[in-house]
């Protein structure tokens, strides 16, 4: 185990976060505040409770997930795309480090940032809405699991992308719609039946539903299924990454 190697990558990536504090922490916090003002206060005041949960509190898990997914993907994809773009990736490829260690460094750092971000957003939410967390252990578990899974997904995108457009296209064109249609601002019970069925194909539904269950004990789908789906996506990402490193796809010609 090349412990020094992992720690070098991890620290390098964390240092990047410190340099881009505005972009990494401040901008998601500000955008979350805007969501609270618009959806929580302005619109939420006219909305009834969903389940027994006031609308302002109901959207918290979804908003945290929204930032978590977007930032896990962008952090991790940028983390590996930049060395590829600037050419410095040669150093990582020629280093005595296994691909699992490379991932521990890059994905570990990206996931750490996401977890920190998630916790900051939760803390910010307290200023707008009063809420309590029913299952803190599961809340943290979902937070960590989602951060890791989507950082892995971002890492894959970062390797796949060979220009900046590709780097942006997946988060913008696929993940954003999935999150908005994944029950961030509503319970999927509120949809017509056809759309409910379609929604079940959206993986983000399971994440948000599971996360919301950890907060309020109510969910669209069973917590076990949420957990299974998340773990399933995590496994798929791991399999893809091990394939990438075994074949050298876009890394080693």
């Amino acid at each position: 185990m090349n412990f020094y190697g992992v720690s070098a990558i991890y620290k390098f990536e964390m240092a990047r976060m410190k340099r881009t504090l505005m972009q990494s922490i401040l901008s998601p916090v500000i955008s979350t505040c805007l969501y609270f003002v618009v959806f929580g206060s302005a619109i939420g005041a006219r909305m009834g409770d969903i389940g027994d949960v006031p609308y302002g509190a109901f959207i918290i898990p979804g908003l945290v997930m929204l930032s978590l997914l977007m930032h896990s993907i962008s952090n991790a994809s940028f983390g590996i795309y930049m060395p590829k773009f600037s050419g410095t990736v040669y150093e990582v490829l020629s280093a005595p480090i296994s691909y699992i260690e490379v991932i521990l460094g890059y994905v570990g750092a990206a996931a750490t940032k996401s977890v920190i971000l998630g916790l900051i957003i939760l803390a910010t939410s307290k200023f707008f809405v009063d809420y309590s967390i029913l299952h803190p252990f599961w809340m943290v578990s979902f937070l960590v699991l989602t951060s890791v899974t989507f950082s892995l997904f971002g890492f894959i995108i970062g390797i796949w992308a060979d220009n900046f457009e590709k780097l942006q296209v997946v988060p913008m064109m696929i993940v954003t719609p999935l999150v908005f249609l994944g029950g961030t601002f509503y319970s999927i019970d509120m949809l017509p039946e056809v759309w409910q069925t379609i929604s079940l194909f959206n993986p983000v539904v399971y994440l948000i539903s599971g996360f919301r269950w950890a907060f309020f004990g109510v969910s669209d789908v069973h917590i076990g299924i949420s957990l299974l789906m998340t773990l399933g996506f995590l496994t798929a990402c791991l399999v893809t990454i091990s394939w990438i490193f075994k074949t050298g796809y876009k890394l080693r010609p």
């Binding site: 090349n2 990558i9 620290k11 390098f12 280093a95």
Partner: peptide
């Protein structure tokens, strides 16, 4: 990165 950080990073990367 600073020169110092970049060179130290390389040493760590190589274990």
């Amino acid at each position: 990165e600073t020169v110092w950080a970049a060179v130290s990073f390389s040493r760590g990367l190589f274990g």
